[in-house]
Design a protein around this nucleic acid. Sequence first.
DNA 1: TTACATAATGTTATTTTATAACAATAAACT
DNA 2: AGTTTATTGTTATAAAATAACATTATGTAA
Lengths: 127, 127
Amino acid sequence: METLTRNQQIVLDIINKSSEPLKAYTILSNVQKKGIKAPPQVYRALDKLIEMGKIHKIESKNAFVACQNSSCNVSKATAFSICESCEEVTEISNSKISKYLSNFAEKAGMEYKKYNLEFFGLCKKCK
Amino acid sequence: METLTRNQQIVLDIINKSSEPLKAYTILSNVQKKGIKAPPQVYRALDKLIEMGKIHKIESKNAFVACQNSSCNVSKATAFSICESCEEVTEISNSKISKYLSNFAEKAGMEYKKYNLEFFGLCKKCK
DNA sequence: TTACATAATGTTATTTTATAACAATAAACT
DNA sequence: AGTTTATTGTTATAAAATAACATTATGTAA
């Protein structure tokens, strides 16, 4: 179990507290009172947290969310559903999807390391 | 069958000719001799071409590729495999994946409109 | 055809997202 | 303690995308 550095912990705390994906510069403005002053400090922390699987990047939004799946301490397969109305992002932790896709990748002749899947539509509330 | 405007056609031609995903500013520098001078012109063409399903955006790379799947004239479900060594990007047009994932989304209670899936790993050549 | 609406374009400036480069500290190792 | 390695702080800049608005082209209906 890796221990976090000060900056990593500060950034992770903000993301954990948030109910929605946060952008890097939003994070920055929220941690400036804690002494993190410049973008590279935020991006470096984000990079490490992603490596550790503590957070994920929502590529279509350039935003970052806490991993909601306690078992994924290495980020190798991520899936999200994204509501186009309320912007809610939910991590899908479905072992069937994961198995299905890993299997598919192998059959396709690819030495697969990870995947990212993003669903777009309307969530239960919004539809 | 929609007809393309001049700018859309110019941008599509460049992307079609390329064997790899192109970034917006790479496209721009390649079409300046044809009279497209500024980023908004490129981005507007890209947006329309995506709407039409002629091209797709590789979110993890901020790059654009021609649709390799002649049947997808509306871009609602895309899947790619991306080689982390040679950067080759291949569109996966597998109706099974598509069916499986659509099905999954529906069961999850989401009114699903589209998805984007990106696999990362090593392609056949590189592994 | 002419008038009106709609869409596409051209252009400048700016915003947003991300990284390069390098000096300064701190942590881990032998 | 001295050396290596990782992390931090900082400034500047690069890369990606959009806002805003004036202009031109295209479609449509009287």
